[in-house]
Amino acid sequence: MQALATQDVMPTGTTRSPHELIRSTALQMFVERGYQSVSLRQLASAIGMQAGSLYNHIESKDALLFELIEAYETDLLQALPGKLLILCDPLKALNAFIKSHVAFTFEHRQRWLLARLEYRCLTASQQGRIHALRQDTAERLGAILQAGMDQGRFVKVPVKTMVPCMLAMLNEISSWHSPGHTSSLTTTVGLHTKMIHAVLLPTAMPTATGSTEH
């Protein structure tokens, strides 16, 4: 089995709990082999544990998959700009949203892949929870667009149409960064910021593409 991706390895000298080890190993195996192709026996073997012992740390394989995807969507949402920045400066909030979203998917590519590829394996109720988290992310972006329009800083756009289009673009960024790809995070953030500014900002308004910090 290959070494874990950098973003999924605990800091040097840090001892991971059995649950953390199960999560990180399951993440890699589910992504590399496919969720349906990995048995709990295989997962236990990969971490040097008896299959029955896994149940001391996880409820089930299904619950483990849901936990991994829910944690990804929750962490992504928490990385995005909050309501105070949105109301005070919608343009700065927009730039922060783009940068945060790109950086998060860039740094957590395995988690992004799992959330995209194995969502279909969740139960209906689990999918409902993930959909609610994704809707919270969409509403955060929608609030930015609406605040910008209300303040006359963005051109008028149909928010319900624009939000899914922008998120579709941002959610696919991680697929650009396969091994050997040379585009840097800074380059990718700048490119997407320019494209989104071109749609939202009046032509007379400076795009301020360099202002992508929080």
Rank of each mutant, 00 (worst) to 15 (best):
T123Q: 07
S125T: 10
S125W: 02
Q126S: 06
Q126E: 12
Q127V: 04
R129F: 04
R129W: 04
H131F: 04
A132N: 06
A132S: 07
L133M: 06
D136I: 03
T137L: 11
A138H: 11
E139D: 10
E139F: 12
R140H: 11
G142K: 11
A143Q: 15
I144P: 00
I144M: 08
L145P: 02
Q146C: 11
Q146N: 14
M149Q: 15
D150K: 13
G152N: 12
R153G: 05
K156W: 07
P158S: 12
P158E: 14
P158Y: 12
V159L: 12
M162A: 14
M162H: 06
V163M: 08
C165Q: 12
L167W: 09
L167P: 08
L170I: 04
L170C: 04
E172D: 12
E172S: 10
S174Q: 04
S174A: 08
S175L: 10
S175F: 05
S175Q: 07
H177F: 07
S178R: 09
P179I: 06
G180E: 03
H181M: 05
T182H: 03
T182K: 05
S184M: 01
L185I: 04
M195P: 00
H197M: 10
H197Y: 15
A198V: 09
L200K: 11
A204M: 14
P206G: 13
